[in-house]
């Protein structure tokens, strides 16, 4: 997986949200600029949303991290 341009190793079957949390990368910043992180872990809250392979507003908790997958967070 490539996060904000940096290549990282992620084990098989790990969700994008879990991988980012492990790496302490904030997926999204609120309108106010406040850092947010995953809340529900099950696709409901959209707090884990990131851009995946160019597709914005993807819920990181509902997507498995894959090799070569490009993830962009508000951090990057």
């Amino acid at each position: 997986m490539i996060v904000n341009g940096v290549s990282v190793d992620v084990a098989d079957g790990v969700s994008v949200a879990a991988a980012l949390m492990q790496l302490k990368i904030i997926p999204r910043r609120a309108l106010s600029g406040e850092a947010r992180g995953p809340l529900c872990g099950m696709g409901v809250c959209f707090e884990c949303r990131v851009t995946i392979d160019g597709q914005p507003h993807e819920r990181g908790c509902m997507v498995r991290a894959r090799e070569g997958m490009e993830v962009r967070s508000d951090e990057g």
């Binding site: 992620v10 084990a11 079957g13 790990v14 969700s15 949200a17 879990a18 991988a19 949390m21 492990q22 904030i26 609120a30 406040e34 850092a35 947010r36 992180g37 995953p38 809340l39 529900c40 872990g41 099950m42 409901v44 908790c61």
Partner: peptide, 28 residues
């Protein structure tokens, strides 16, 4: 889904759902 209630600080990144954190752990 879980019911979350607002209290000061509940939007901080280390505040996660209970089932939510469990789901994230099950997913790696």
């Amino acid at each position: 889904r879980e019911l979350f209630l607002p209290f000061p600080g509940w939007t901080l990144p280390h505040v996660v759902g209970a089932g939510g954190l469990q789901a994230l752990v099950k997913n790696g």
